[in-house]
Write a protein that binds this DNA or RNA. Sequence first.
DNA 1: TATGGTTGTCTAGATAAATAGACAAATGAG
DNA 2: CTCATTTGTCTATTTATCTAGACAACCATA
Lengths: 246, 246
Amino acid sequence: MTTLQRRTGIALWRQVADQIRQSVLSGMTANERLPAEAELANRFGVNRHTVRAAIAALEKEGTLRAEQGRGTFLNDRRRLQYPIGPRTRFSSGLKDQSQTRTGKLLSSRTIPAPPRVAEALELPKTAEVVELSTVSAADGDPISAATSWFDASRFAAIAEHYAETGSITASLARLGVDDYTRQTTAIEARHASSEDLDLLGLSPGAIVLLTRSVDVDSAGQPIQYGESRFAADRIELLIDNRAPAA
Amino acid sequence: MTTLQRRTGIALWRQVADQIRQSVLSGMTANERLPAEAELANRFGVNRHTVRAAIAALEKEGTLRAEQGRGTFLNDRRRLQYPIGPRTRFSSGLKDQSQTRTGKLLSSRTIPAPPRVAEALELPKTAEVVELSTVSAADGDPISAATSWFDASRFAAIAEHYAETGSITASLARLGVDDYTRQTTAIEARHASSEDLDLLGLSPGAIVLLTRSVDVDSAGQPIQYGESRFAADRIELLIDNRAPAA
DNA sequence: TATGGTTGTCTAGATAAATAGACAAATGAG
DNA sequence: CTCATTTGTCTATTTATCTAGACAACCATA
């Protein structure tokens, strides 16, 4: 039994909200009615007002809707699966699960390569790189915020291409990279920074999945190093070893 | 700039603790001194007592140590890399990064297969499965808590073998599975449940990486479905496509 | 239309978190 | 030893959060 804890720095109503999301909603289908506030209060051992605060938060984030006199209902919000493998690409990976994918360029600049970037791209420490900050969305919902780095001597114009196409794959194609594959992906989880809260439209305390990835061209030369933050409540990462690299 | 937020259900001292972990400690080396409490309070725009509460929490989780008159210092705690690929195994994956690995059996039982388990293992809905609850540790630090399911008709005795060996791979080998590979791994991130807080020795509000994985034998038959929770502040998941399956 | 069940709103009091200020205790350097 | 710097402890006040209870508003349906 998952007992709630006090004096932990996390308000009870927020713990209740997390519990409802995890244990109550997990066994429910879209548009199903939740137990009444009074029953939830009883089940979690808290006051009804605390449950109401939790429900208000879940309603604000779009998970639930409360209707006076009728009850509180689960909205339809499935978690997208984002595939990660040798041929990881944002747009094609979500193809089956969403109607529209957009990539928006927030900013770009050319800077001396930070140490971890130079290492990942196998560039000398003095090299310059192009840094892109982007936000990607599926069906209008922001899915990920990413920062990507490219060798400036080879991909100086990538920002302009990305601004036009909204796609890394398309931008690289214009610059002569007909194909590339994912070399490594490291995955961490953290609390979202306030900047990412804003970019991804999350509520405070939300979790992001952070991936750090290296892509290589067909010659095995690293061409992109990227750090992406995914809204953990909207997406899961899927590693499928069944489909071998084409 | 990462501004702290109020009325979010997350206490300020906890937000400060997260900020210190992320932005202050990230650029520091082991045993380095942190800025003084007064300076941190000034930097984050909160009272010194709030910073002290944050430091107390980080000290309790082992990240820092405070010494009266001298300052507060960063403890040595690197994040382990847990590789995920076609040949994912707990013990061998952490071999280079730790001295000892242990696997402890918490409980086991034979139950009718829950729907998602039956689906993953390609069993009929009426099938029975063995459910193992385990905790794995590296060098004494708990790394992951896992729940695993096996076809009861094929692996009835796996609990006993695991209790003896502390290893899934070794237990399966005793039951005639000489080799197996990882078929799929889905990754999510969540707040740790109070049970996992306990099992993994985490402080409230901590994040876990949740993996749901299917392993298949050499004939392609699913043999294990598992749900593992990793302490996100101690580990990162690494997908490396460079090493092809042997 | 009457009734039971549900969410919405209000008041009041108790507990936890945050701010403010003062001073003690330990450390290291001059 | 003296002094500036740092962490540790204490009191007091204000602001959030949580509990408790009552009742209104709305809905479905008998």
